[in-house]
Amino acid sequence: MILCPLDLLDTTPEADETLVRMVAGLDQVTCLLGSEPDRDRVASLGAAGAERLLWAPMAPESPTGLRVDALASCVGPEDLVVAPATRQGTEIAARLALRLGRAISVSAETITSTEGQLEVTAGAFSGTWRLTAELPYASVVTMSTVGADPATGAPRAPEVRRLDVDLVPDPREPVVIGTTAKDAGDGPSLAQASIVVAGGRGTDGDFSLLEQLATLLGGAVGSSRVAVDLGWAGPEQQVGQTGATVAPDLYIAAGISGAVQHLAGMSAAKHVVAINTDPDAPIFRSCDLGIVGDLQTVLAETVTTVRSHARAIPA
């Protein structure tokens, strides 16, 4: 059996379903949810291939240790645990592997099993290498759902059951004392957008044309770490090793020099366009189209052209 902790602080229902689809071909999947699933959630996780949904009341802000306790209470000695490769998923996986004495592999992109062994592949060293590793079946693995489009198998009608366990928060764990919700905005999330327009130091803090182009194209705005550090973009917009990993169809890097840490977050983009005034910027070695020039000029002209194209189409 495969046990998947879902409903985490930093996952979405769509990413949860992708994770289930990624592993449903391997074995029977049991999902551990943080609240009782409604009919739609049961149906969508069933369509993704889940056999069983266990749930326990665990609010998004409850201590991560509760999720580790809940998992530990229902994982069998032969079971594989697959968690989302998010920050909370990684913490859960790390603590569970430690507690159970299991092998752990993080940020796997593919997973297969033969004769009681797992084989996982993952990017390494800022995406410059691909590693394949073997580990026992009963391990703990985190999987990245970014850019994954796994096939859908036969839909199931999952059994839903409340987990029969007393979950008591450990007083040593950090507790949330304040929450400031973020404006989700109208466009797609960075992780799901098929077009990402990202800005760096070269924008000089003016993201207005990037935002206009992203809106016109139905995309999302990303940024380099430097731009976030300078307060030009929000932390949730950061693309790179320490921010979001994205795999859009098109990534437009405007005024981003292309440090390896940034490339690690966007190297899986299908097509990359870079705009930079410096012809020697490293980003020009990691793109498909490189435009040497002023990004505000190029983006302004692009926005004008795209707008006139859009107007030419009758509604």
Binding site: A103, A133, L135, P279, S286, L289, G290, T297, V298, E301
Partner: peptide, 26 residues
């Protein structure tokens, strides 16, 4: 956990470089 294979990720093909002159970039 045992790493059994490691390969260098294939680099992106060399980019087409356009120097922006009179709107050629856009």
């Amino acid at each position: 956990l045992r790493t059994v294979a490691a390969t260098v990720a294939p680099p992106r093909a060399p980019a087409r470089i356009v120097t922006d002159v009179d709107g050629s970039g856009a």
